[in-house]
């Protein structure tokens, strides 16, 4: 709640956001032609806040993170517009050396599959020490000691011993903890976590999310959490940004998004996961149809072909962004009444 008041003050308030993304557009070149994967993505993230980017496959949530860090370029993507101000500096316009200093320094990253993000032939401790020495003038010995401290911080038992292990010697949960330790090496102000628990079992997922939340509080980090799992979002996010086909369709405080969503897509996603609200064995509420192909997007709202509220205008014109409730907005001509939840407007 404090987080949402903070963002409303962005326009003229004294505390500028830690991250301010505006009009981000990213295109991938494919043999079928250019694919507009992100179209005009905008959001802000305050210091110490947790923002969840949610969406289904192809919504652009991972590409958003990869664009902020300019990792899309290596994957064949091109950022074609927008700004991403991190503490006032545009990440999208930084020279490569300055960007490298921030990446892994003031901004840490955690990915879905630690096994492919870790070097398989280097000891865990050495990898973390190397990450530290990229950004801090420490001796090898001091960096190793710090690596062991970090492994202890992420609650890996016997950290001195585990530091000597290779990634394959750790369990999936421990590898993800080691990834987090590495991301925290330089005490980042922002941690970007892309599906950090998707490859893990539910009990391990709960443990890792509790760890991330505890570390975020203790270290005062902001967290940009990218996930498809609305249950995970409900557990940790302050605010939520919902993406559909490369656009932000709704954003707002977590309580509002879950209790009184404005966009019919958000509502549909919530209904599809709230199985406990239904009699066992009964038909689930469905979002009919399929996510549109990015090379064949409809002229109007990308969700219109699946939307129960769509009319002719929705099919013809992309809906503009509208505030439907305090701190909550959606790109929709026919938002759900704000009174669907507890806070009638």
């Amino acid at each position: 709640m404090t987080a949402s008041t903070r963002i409303s003050a962005v326009a003229e308030g004294p505390a500028p956001p830690l991250l301010q993304v505006s009009g981000l557009c990213t295109t991938f070149t494919t043999h079928a032609g250019p694919l507009p994967v992100l179209r005009d993505v905008s959001f802000t993230l305050a210091r110490g806040e947790t923002l969840a980017l949610v969406g289904e496959s192809g919504s652009g949530k991972s590409v958003t993170a990869a664009s902020l860090l300019r990792l899309v370029e290596a994957a064949g993507g091109r950022i074609t517009g927008g700004r991403a101000l991190f503490d006032g500096v545009d990440l999208l316009a930084l020279p490569p050396a300055a960007l490298r200093a921030i990446r892994g320094g003031r901004i840490g990253m955690v990915f879905q599959e630690p096994l492919s993000a870790l070097n398989p032939v280097q000891r865990i401790g050495a990898q973390i020490a190397e990450a530290i020495r990229l950004h801090r003038p420490l001796s090898r010995r001091a960096a190793w000691a710090r690596a062991v401290e970090l492994l202890a911080l992420v609650q890996i038992p016997a950290p001195e011993l585990r530091a000597r292990d290779y990634p394959h010697q750790l369990s999936g949960g421990q590898r993800q903890r080691a990834m987090i330790a590495m991301a925290l090496a330089c005490e980042p102000e922002l941690l970007i976590a892309d599906e950090p628990t998707t490859a893990l079992d539910v009990t391990t997922q709960a443990q890792i999310m509790a760890l991330l939340e505890d570390l975020r509080r203790r270290l005062g980090m902001a967290l940009l959490l990218i996930t498809h799992d609305l249950g995970v979002v409900a557990g940790v996010a302050d605010r939520v940004v919902v993406l559909y086909a490369g656009r932000v369709v709704e954003q707002g405080p977590v309580e509002r998004i879950f209790a009184a969503p404005l966009h019919p897509y958000t509502r549909g996603l919530l209904d599809a996961v709230r199985l406990e609200a239904l009699p066992p064995g009964s038909a689930l509420p469905e979002i009919p149809g399929l996510v549109p192909a990015l090379h064949d997007l409809p002229a109007g709202c990308a969700f219109a072909p699946r939307c129960p509220r769509a009319d002719a205008r929705c099919h013809a014109t992309p809906p503009p962004w509208r505030e439907g409730a305090p701190h909550q907005g959606a790109a929709c001509f026919h938002p759900l009444p704000a009174g669907t939840g507890r806070h009638a407007a």
């Binding site: 369990s171 949960g173 539910v202 009990t203 443990q207 249950g231 995970v232 409900a234 879950f258």
Partner: peptide, 27 residues
């Protein structure tokens, strides 16, 4: 019980009111 407690629930108030997972260590 641990599995049930670890299963995410799409309700912020309920998710945050949960006690910590009654489970130590890893599989």
């Amino acid at each position: 019980r641990a599995l049930m407690a670890a299963t995410p629930v799409a309700d912020p108030a309920e998710a945050r009111a949960r006690p910590p997972l009654p489970l130590t260590g890893e599989l």
